[in-house]
Write a protein that binds this DNA or RNA. Sequence first.
DNA 1: ACCTGAACACCGTTCAAGT
DNA 2: ACCTGAACACCGTTCAAGT
Lengths: 198, 198
Amino acid sequence: MTTDKGDAAAARPSPHGRPGLNRRNIAAAALALIDAGGLGSFSMRKLGTGLGVDPMAVYRHFRDQDELFDGVAQALFEEVDIEALDWDGTWRTVLEQFCRELRDALLRHPHAVPVFATRRTPSWASVDCGVRVARMLQADGFAPARSVHMVLCLREFTTGHALSQAVSRPVGGHLDPHEGHHFEVGLMAMLDGFEGLR
Amino acid sequence: MTTDKGDAAAARPSPHGRPGLNRRNIAAAALALIDAGGLGSFSMRKLGTGLGVDPMAVYRHFRDQDELFDGVAQALFEEVDIEALDWDGTWRTVLEQFCRELRDALLRHPHAVPVFATRRTPSWASVDCGVRVARMLQADGFAPARSVHMVLCLREFTTGHALSQAVSRPVGGHLDPHEGHHFEVGLMAMLDGFEGLR
DNA sequence: ACCTGAACACCGTTCAAGT
DNA sequence: ACCTGAACACCGTTCAAGT
């Protein structure tokens, strides 16, 4: 991952009184802009002007749009509170809670779900989280490779579900009060199936 | 769905000797262009010039890029041979075969998977297919709503998996000879879980 | 050294002008 | 009536020129 050693200093207000730009607040602003106007109307130039700086200023913190979108995915994943999971509960409870947390975070940002879902690595925090969950599964008796596969499958189902919901939801409205209810059906089925793999 | 009544006539060679443009062959050409150069380098203008016609000619068949991408998703889904499924086998066999067919078709076009996965309706053929599978599940004793949920869950897992594989695969190479092997783990687990829902 | 914004090489889409 | 391509309003990104 690209480090950003300048952020600690840049987070202080600049000499002009504006809050300094850094990767974190630029990515957060990009996510907000995508939330507000949809992915199609997002642009690097609008992001810069929206932040009140030179439209090209973002390029001093991110190589290009692709790298910025990595930051957007990271910002989104930070809403998943890993520490809030009941790590002392059963493996099944942890997986359930994690998938629901991830789904909820994604659906709070429907326009950004395609960005998240098409990142090569949605964020290093999500990788770390996956490793942690896989280790827990191993401690509970699942084979190492199997543990990794289970985590990948759940992440793919959850992301696939959120993406499907996000793109089928008309802007500003809900299709159906029960839309997305089937997520629980799939989650329960997959976890039931995993029970037999220990 | 938008009809395309002009296609039957347009499929014949034009007075200039070139094969006439229609929705079907334009969408196929777009898919081929995405396959060859990646989604990032695709453009409406390149598509037109690649077809040997005016760069704007595509707009007489598709309202805009979004509608063309619906056609691309449709072209991709047509590679899934629904009739080749063993419809006389068990519901489980049909679901297994369908998911594997869809996954294989998607991974033959990794650059187009984000297009497919972000369509509101990937194609009417896929909707019809889903309805047909759901009807089979009902005939096998699953509740109607449950049947629909099962189909949606499998489609979301399969699409999510293919998308994850497609974006993590470096252009022109494979990450690992065993990559994607976990698809079977998730598919078997979900189907095992579904067994208990009848 | 840092910052700016003009400039380049493109886009998607429209529409007036042709045939 | 059909077709064309010039024109419009943008893009992402680079980089020479400024401070």
